[in-house]
Computed example of a mutant assay.
Amino acid sequence: MVGRVHGGWRGPGGRRGPGRGGWQQADLPPCDDAAAWLHGRLPDGWFTDAPDVTIDREEIVVVGELAAPDGDYTDDESGRAERAAAEAGRISRFREQTREERIEIARQAEHRYGRKVAWGARIGDSVELFTVASVPVMTRLRQPERIVLDTLVDAGVARSRSDALAWAVRLVGQHADDWLGELRAAMAKVDELRAKGPTG
């Protein structure tokens, strides 16, 4: 097993599938083997299993599971807080101890795949991402959509319209994960057929 790979649909050469703007990012190197490459490149013992690798046009995010810290924590509120603190400390230690090697691996991966690399670690329900990219995305919204964003801001759910839009996208991703997966698989099949061309 080389880790689960998540990400958008790509055609030959790592290109994004056609949309209103046609083929995009045609100059990006292919990244189909990124999870396997990282699995082979990462030092043994960093993670308890192969890391999850998430890829889009700008970034590769690598999140690995760390061994849980030893400790006999009670199941009450105090024990859960102590466990969470111990997990946060373990993740912080991993981040500091592996910093230089992670930078070198990221440099190699960026050269190979043409994308920035970000890291994260997980212990149980505790997850921390390190220096992930925040990429601006321009969009035009009509008044009904703007009112939705302003309602989220006015209610204190989000700090700004951009924060509200990011919140809405995260919500869709959480509740439509299966549907999005099916959509990506369907688009990948279309791309495969397009690459083959007519055989008759």
Results as ranks from 00 to 15, higher is better:
163 D>C: 02
52 D>F: 00
196 K>V: 09
19 G>Y: 00
53 V>R: 07
151 T>S: 08
129 L>C: 09
141 L>S: 06
67 A>H: 05
61 V>F: 06
29 P>M: 06
131 T>E: 15
56 D>E: 12
53 V>D: 03
19 G>L: 00
131 T>D: 15
9 W>M: 12
182 E>N: 05
15 R>G: 00
123 I>E: 11
121 A>N: 09
20 R>Y: 04
194 R>H: 09
172 V>C: 03
106 A>L: 12
28 L>A: 03
95 R>L: 14
169 V>F: 06
25 Q>P: 00
92 S>C: 02
143 Q>M: 11
154 D>G: 12
107 R>A: 14
16 R>V: 01
17 G>F: 00
137 V>S: 10
129 L>W: 07
200 G>K: 05
157 V>E: 07
7 G>E: 08
97 Q>G: 07
160 S>T: 15
50 A>K: 03
170 R>T: 12
47 F>G: 03
185 A>C: 07
58 E>F: 04
159 R>F: 09
121 A>G: 12
107 R>V: 02
166 A>N: 07
121 A>K: 06
98 T>V: 04
63 V>W: 00
80 R>M: 11
195 A>W: 02
188 A>T: 06
48 T>S: 09
197 G>L: 00
123 I>G: 09
62 V>D: 06
120 G>R: 04
171 L>F: 11
100 E>N: 07
59 E>I: 13
112 R>Q: 15
165 L>Y: 01
151 T>G: 06
54 T>Q: 12
113 Y>I: 01
189 K>N: 06
149 L>C: 05
146 R>L: 15
2 V>C: 09
175 H>D: 14
176 A>W: 02
123 I>A: 13
31 C>V: 14
